[in-house]
């Protein structure tokens, strides 16, 4: 890899500059919330101040971590399942175009199913274990991934395909050499979107019934009139989503070095 180590501090500074507005707006929101909760006379059992949420989160950190682990597990396993299925089906659809017309309506319908109604049913059918969570996470993330991949293959430059065929490449070679790499940017765009769906999907499944998990933790806290703990769990799930999102960004940078390096002009002058 030709990673330019000399520009690393500059990159970091740039990252901070980019993150600054977001950090500031979130900070302002927290300050406003804190002031409102403290001075409006609203009861902490209705709206706790962020400082109290944080305090309680620290006091209950063991329970929070304990409940976050099953959620993480369900998210990652469900996501892995949907990725595998989406990849296999995307290839099938790419090689046999008629299948696309037959299958896509089914997939689209699967996306319009209301999660609120489906989650309790899936729990009813498959119990309180890991299976229904994995299924729900897979259900909400599968279609965005499939569409991203199929669109990505289609984005292959026509000329590249023609050239490869003229070189003597068959369907499979064209797929591996051109269509798959062409789909990478689409794949990562889909990944970023569906990873956020995945966490929400897992929590929803737990909300509908689970032994452990952030979803059931939120439900119990709410039933015990502890909005501070509900919000603490929300904070944990938000952090989880952000971390997963960050990981996909990192993964994309590693997997597509040309996107980053390609933007920097070559060291020497153009042409000759």
């Amino acid at each position: 890899m030709v990673s330019s180590s000399s520009s690393r501090p500059l990159q970091l500074a740039g990252l901070f500059a980019k993150a600054a507005p977001a950090v500031m707006s979130v900070g302002l929101l927290l300050v406003a919330w804190e002031l409102y909760a403290n001075y409006s006379g609203i009861k902490p059992t209705i709206l706790p101040a962020p400082s109290r949420v944080f305090e309680q989160a620290m006091l209950n950190r063991e329970a929070l971590i304990d409940n976050a682990i099953p959620t993480i597990r369900a998210t990652l396993m469900g996501f892995a399942c949907s990725l595998g299925a989406a990849f296999a089906l995307s290839m099938l659809v790419d090689f046999f175009q008629p299948l696309r017309r037959a299958l896509f309506p089914v997939f689209i319908v699967s996306q319009t199913l209301p999660l609120v109604a489906i989650a309790p049913l899936v729990v009813l059918w498959f119990g309180f274990g890991l299976t229904p969570k994995i299924m729900l996470v897979a259900l909400v993330t599968f279609f965005p991934m499939l569409v991203a991949l199929v669109q990505g293959y289609e984005a292959t430059e026509v000329e590249i395909g023609q050239m490869l065929r003229a070189m003597g490449a068959g369907c499979w070679r064209v797929f591996v050499l051109a269509r798959l790499p062409s789909a990478l940017p689409y794949f990562f765009a889909g990944l970023r979107i569906s990873i956020t769906y995945a966490v929400v999907g897992a929590i929803f499944a737990e909300y509908a019934g689970a032994a452990k998990g952030l979803g059931i933790y939120m439900l119990n806290a709410k039933n015990n009139f502890r909005p501070d703990l509900v919000l603490a769990a929300v904070g944990v799930s938000a952090a989880l989503t952000l971390i997963l999102f960050g990981l996909t960004v990192l993964l994309q940078r590693l997997a597509m070095p040309w996107e980053r390096i390609g933007r920097q002009p070559a060291g020497k002058g153009p042409g000759r």
Binding site: E157, E159, I160, Q162, A166, M167, L177, G262
Partner: peptide
């Protein structure tokens, strides 16, 4: 396969 073909756009693979 008699021909080496260079398409209208350069068709270089960006990756």
């Amino acid at each position: 396969r008699h021909f080496a073909f260079m398409p209208q756009r350069d068709a270089l693979m960006p990756w």
